[in-house]
Amino acid sequence: MEKQKILVFGNFNYSTHNLCGQTVKTRNVYQLLKSKERQYFSEVAFFDTDSLSANKLGLFQGLYHVIKTNELFYLPATKNLTYIFPFVFILSKLFSTKIHFVVVGGWLGEYLQNKPIYRFMISKVHHIYPETDALCQYLESHYGFKKVTRLNNFRDTNFVPVQRAIGHPIKLVFMARVHPLKGVETLFKLNQRLKELNFENVIIDIYGPIFEEYKEEFNKLLITASDNIAYTGILQPNDIYPVLSQYDMMLFPTQYYTEGFPGSILDAYISGLPVIASNWLYANEFIDNTSGAVVDFDDKNAFLNKVIELIKKPDIIDSLKQGARAKSYEFSSDKAWEVLLSNMVS
């Protein structure tokens, strides 16, 4: 049988290399499919929607790629879905392109609530791949979508962390967008509480791109905080696992309730780090008592108390580190490939 042409359509952000969950997952899907090119496909190409910020006419090039491909892996954020997807959908029907709709995050169910036209279009794509069981069930039960399969967030890596005994100082890390909705201010409250309790042997490092409109406020928080909390920049992909593996726990006090499966949690597991998180909509699908802890979504004190409780029990942190590493094997690229291959046109 003739091999198929594949196109991955989404935000790669190759122009600025400003990595986030959207861009990392888009790149990972492309790299996974590209690695199978010789064996399964005649070509695996990509279109970077980030290029449209500099050249709106580039959309015509992207749409031309859509009509020339057999199977399209489409990874939109909300703006892309709102303004570009209708054109992509119409062309896919005119030129018999199969759309694989790969969902990034947990927002799709809410987005579709008052959009019957978009619900109709998405119901007609070849397959839909949410990140969570709960979103799969929601799309099926509320909107009657039929071809829905969970596709875990994944990484293609052979990294094996060196087991690091808990020492002094105990090192806590946050790695995500530096944004109020990611719970950044909770980190500063934790730092203050630790200072009040005379925990001098605990440091908190913050990694990630700073939301532009939050920079001034964030810098004020840093200036007034103690030396035990610091902003440490943006980790490049090749540095993530070696750097994270030098820490003891990852903090994820998100206030963004419809998070999907944040890539930073998967990066923590691969690096052997347990995760302490607020209970966003899907938290319990990814964090259990073997790999970290989940606390009430709106209870910042509960988050602080749980972190402090674990700091006092380093033997439990050691056990959670082993559980986190074991958890990472559920999110391999091999398992992701099995899901995609089983739903592609044969």
Rank of each mutant, 00 (worst) to 15 (best):
D299F: 09
I223Y: 07
F73C: 11
F41R: 11
Y269P: 09
Q31K: 05
V339C: 09
G109L: 06
I229M: 02
D299N: 08
V275H: 02
Q137R: 15
L251M: 07
R193W: 04
V103T: 03
M1I: 13
D298A: 12
L222K: 03
D267L: 06
Q236G: 06
L139K: 02
V44I: 08
Q39A: 10
I265W: 15
H142E: 09
N201M: 01
V102P: 00
W107Y: 14
M250Y: 00
R38S: 08
P314W: 15
I223G: 00
D318P: 00
F9E: 06
K215E: 02
D227K: 11
F73R: 01
F252P: 04
P314Y: 14
F85E: 09
F303Y: 14
A283I: 01
L19F: 14
Y231G: 04
K147Y: 09
Q113T: 10
G183S: 05
S342L: 06
K34A: 03
A283F: 00
L172F: 04
N228M: 06
N301R: 14
F218Q: 01
Y231H: 01
Y256K: 12
N343I: 08
K3L: 03
D248I: 03
T82P: 06
L222G: 03
G109Q: 09
T254D: 13
Y214F: 15
N114S: 13
A302L: 06
I166V: 07
N55Q: 08
A54D: 12
F174P: 07
W337A: 05
A277Y: 05
K124H: 11
L304E: 09
K321T: 09
F154P: 00
Q246T: 03
E217V: 14
L194V: 04
L172I: 01
Y64W: 07
I287H: 03
I317R: 10
T258G: 10
N11G: 01
T16P: 02
P237H: 01
D156L: 11
L33H: 02
E330T: 12
Y207W: 04
N153W: 03
P209H: 12
S15E: 15
G58T: 05
N152E: 02
V66G: 04
L72A: 05
D248M: 11
F41H: 10
H179S: 09
T149E: 05
S42A: 15
Y64L: 08
S15Y: 15
T258A: 14
G323P: 15
K147Q: 10
K327C: 08
A268K: 11
T82Q: 13
E309H: 12
Y329M: 08
H179R: 08
L63P: 05
